[in-house]
Design a protein around this nucleic acid. Sequence first.
DNA 1: AAAAATACTTGCTTTTTGCAAGTTATCTGA
DNA 2: TCAGATAACTTGCAAAAAGCAAGTATTTTT
Lengths: 126, 126
Amino acid sequence: MPTSKHAAPDRDNPTVRRSPCPVACALDLFGDRWTLLIIRDLILGRRRFKEFAESPEGIPTNILSNRLERLLNGGVVRQIPADKGSKRLAYELTEKGLALRPILLTIRDWGLQWEPETKAGMERGD
Amino acid sequence: MPTSKHAAPDRDNPTVRRSPCPVACALDLFGDRWTLLIIRDLILGRRRFKEFAESPEGIPTNILSNRLERLLNGGVVRQIPADKGSKRLAYELTEKGLALRPILLTIRDWGLQWEPETKAGMERGD
DNA sequence: AAAAATACTTGCTTTTTGCAAGTTATCTGA
DNA sequence: TCAGATAACTTGCAAAAAGCAAGTATTTTT
């Protein structure tokens, strides 16, 4: 579990909400430039810190640490052993996290339709 | 058209993209804590600067200015006269902006289902 | 012609980001 | 088994963005 002494401003406190609006609450959790890209990677089958860090957008590792912690606290991902018997950890989506899939697919579809120079790449386009 | 001398870092440059991924490109445009709340307000029929500023989340007005400018540049909103013959401006979604509606609805549904203490409020739940 | 409201802009402080470098724990194979 | 090699972070610091209060320039209203 990543734990930095810098990690715990309001953004990382899941009890601080700007309003009771479901959209606002959702954005309190994943409304930033990186979090949904980690979710995208998880949906695509990536599971390890290094794999997320190697995605083409180039997330800084301190941000990655912070976002994984936030997602853990938010119940969106959980940690599992990277290999049977290994002490290394991997990440996987919880049920709550898997439920984000329709959001990602909708965003992808919008991007493909409205943003030029955009290319598919998220398989399982159902 | 809001034009501040502080407005034009990379985030506001629509040609700077982190990757060709449609999700990443979409997040380059609206991946932050505020933009989708403005879109939500527009979908709910709010049209004026003041109305956006009065939403319960309390967006700072300089951020609101910046995000409206970004959305204008991104082709997501356009300006129209606030009333027939008025010189005051209002904002409305373009076709590209209206296409964001499914994203907002999906996020709202996720929030309602998975975030406790969340309340509906986005009418027209189709 | 004031007064009020609207739509921003500015200045300043705080928070977050991004990058490079460092650290610790785990693993691999000679 | 033990010396790299790799993985998974953490830290420090400069730069960017956010947030807040206050100010300003246009309408609009009275």
